[in-house]
Design a protein around this nucleic acid. Structure first.
Lengths: 248, 248
DNA sequence: TGGTCTGCTTGATCTGCGTCAAGGCGAGGT
DNA sequence: ACCTCGCCTTGACGCAGATCAAGCAGACCA
């Protein structure tokens, strides 16, 4: 469940759940055997549930391609997204039985999975794995806290700008698509999903996106393709003080 | 920076930063020496900063007594509390240079600290420490996400009820003060601090507390002492579906 | 070519909470 | 006994964002 934080990616292996030389199945010959034995891929269609809140979760893994969301729902239907899973993000809880959240594929999704039990056994015998997971979890915790500030104290316009700048930054670190000076990316979320992430309604999301467009902070091609002519401007709109903000 | 989640406490040792037999200085003779060497206590006055956001943090540790808060602040002064540190909670980031947040003592505070470098060395040689920290961090992540739902989707009244029920639960698990059938505790936070935690203003906090009092959900003795005649009722007001909610 | 469906936009109105402002209450000091 | 200061309460008013409602645009299908 690693999300929102960019991380250093070891270039040689791009579908391992834990992207670090010390624990990567492709890199360390002596660990390869065990990891490969318990490794498998799963494919999910856009809109399908990867796991339901409360269900038993017998695997851990990471997103290879596509996008998934982590959401909580109250009995009356109010829902809050608590995590956004982009390629390379980790899903799962070694040492936990069930999932506390719904994990939903918002696009077609491929995940690289490990059965949980053997993975946990590996964690015990290979300390570097736990340490790597600890670092990833700390990153996620920072991201979650960053998001608490967004949810608790930012205006609707700032919330939208925050979300856009996070997606832009994540996207830019995966692909390298800053072409004509302006950063460019596709929104992976519907207006409703954005609203659930930001604690807003979809109407407010729509209005604020229109406002940012009118003010020239962003340019839209269609409804999903976004061009950011001036990233610094966008981050200013987001109320971000620091340039990077989201920790390395 | 463990907060909001209750955890199993090993009864024999009540001031060790990591409350688990396998890594506790008082329990494991062979580790005692190293831990004791780098262990020391620090005292903070109510209102003083334990660490400033951005400052270098050369220790990790845990709260022995008193209460501290974790807060983020925007340039214009808007602040959001992102964590509440009660006794037994852990503070610090093995593997990180600085702190991303202000840590402030809201009451007089005693912490049990370890210098970071030696602690990190211990983490490498004693795998159980990293694994224990991972579990604690996962708990904290769950708590942060629980709080995202509170911040993003709950009404002011529900927010107050959520905070009260979390404090009540935490308090009850430390002391055993359910006397006359009604649960009882002291608010460790000012109205303003509660507002910063809940993404509200202090006036709204005050009004909603008055409203809960008027409706008989809570009874106040003075401004800080709270009696909860019916915990189930309070949790219903909080919009909590599950009974425990906050994970073990 | 039209029909439907899903995602999105925009307008009108309502309301929960923020903002501004005026005290109240209890602790500690002189 | 009085003053002050920090913390809290309560009231009046305004506004950002929710709610209700109507309609648009593109994808897909028959």
């Amino acid at each position: 469940m690693m999300n929102l934080g960019s991380m250093t990616v070891h270039q040689d292996c791009d579908d391992c759940p834990i992207r670090h030389r010390a624990v990567c199945a492709r890199c360390e010959a002596d660990e390869l055997q065990l990891l490969e034995e318990i490794k498998y891929y799963r494919r999910f269609e856009a809109g399908s549930h990867v796991i339901w809140s409360g269900d038993k979760m017998d695997f851990v893994g990471s997103v290879v391609s596509g996008i998934a969301t982590l959401t909580q729902t109250m009995e009356d239907g109010r829902t809050q997204m608590v995590g956004l899973l982009l390629p390379s993000d980790f899903v799962g809880r070694p040492g936990r039985e069930g999932s506390a959240y719904d994990v939903v594929a918002t696009t077609d999704l491929v995940m690289c999975c490990f059965r949980k039990k053997p993975f946990e056994r590996m964690m015990e015998t290979t300390p570097a794995i736990a340490q790597r997971l600890l670092q990833m979890t700390l990153d996620e915790l920072d991201a979650a806290r960053e998001w608490m500030l967004v949810l608790g104290r930012k205006t609707a316009r700032e919330k939208i700008a925050s979300l856009l700048s996070i997606i832009a930054r994540r996207d830019a670190s995966l692909n390298f698509n800053s072409s004509d000076g302006g950063l460019t990316f596709d929104l992976p979320l519907t207006r409703e999903a954005m609203a659930d992430y930001l604690g807003l309604t979809l109407e407010t999301v729509s209005r604020q996106i229109s406002a940012l467009k009118k003010d020239g902070v962003i340019v839209l091609e269609g409804k999903r393709h976004v061009i950011v002519p001036d990233m610094a401007r966008l981050m200013e709109e987001a109320g971000d003080d620091s340039d990077g903000g989201l920790l390395a």
